[in-house]
Amino acid sequence: MNNMEIILYTLLSLSGLGIILALILYVVAQRFKVVEDPRIDEIDELLPGANCGGCGYPGCRGFAEALVQADSLDDFYCPVGGNETMKAAASILGKEVAEKEKQVAVVRCQGSPEHRKKTSEYDGPQSCILESKTYSGDSDCPYACLGLGDCVEACDFDAIHMNPETHLPEVIEANCTACNACVEVCPHDIIELRNAGKKSRRIYVSCVNEDKGGPAKKACDVACIGCGKCVKVCAFDAITLENNLAYIDYEKCKLCRKCVDECPTNAIVEVNFPPKKKKTEKKPPPDKKETEKKSQPKDNTNQASENEQEQQNSNSDETKA
């Protein structure tokens, strides 16, 4: 009897407490209800959820909120989710979104110790930003990679690693989401986002040295010396020379690789091209150039067709090879 009473009272008091608290919670929830657009949740679910900030907003939810409020989606892009995510988000919002080409981070410095002699020794916290506040770097090139790996730490996707031999960061393309984190963190602005290009083939000037040719070459064997040879050889006006530094516009570059051969210091780098087999293989590039020339007028009018065209080009390229 006594035991029963205890159990009864316990049950009664606990459930009573539960009911009272539930009521309070309910009242509070109703009173302070935040009316939120349900589409925010929907879009938030679509997004990758990495909260990397690559879109320029604080986390994925912030981006979702901004998307819902925006009139036009042109200025928005989730680099991690890419076009598919953006399309899905646009369809929820009933808006259009322009397709953007996939981008990837490239490291524009080849100054490994064998090319670029160290002239001093930095002693301090192992962080590029702190070294860059101390002085211009431990070699004669004041623009070069400091090699302390701030970019590696900034990357949320395990897409950039230091190569222990070259002391330079290397991007793992498959992981790179072009979130811009490494670009922002690099104090010497060495990392750049470039269009991944067809078949992930890219050509770029792997140097950011703006010194005149003499000092640049003296500081580093593979520096861009601003000779302008590449500018002359480029048939597409894709290369510009400013402050003694060549730059290849990835929108204009047709991947003909002429500049790569022309560069006297090997500062221009090609990525993911099939290896050249010396003399016999010299033909493909000119061929490619011709076909690309034909496609050029179309480029400006229609991007999609250009992509198709290029795909065909590269396909034919391969069949020839």
Partner: peptide, 12 residues
């Protein structure tokens, strides 16, 4: 601890 290194960074 290189305190001043970090404080300088912060100041900048």
């Amino acid at each position: 601890v290189p305190l001043l290194d970090y404080v300088r960074l912060g100041k900048a």
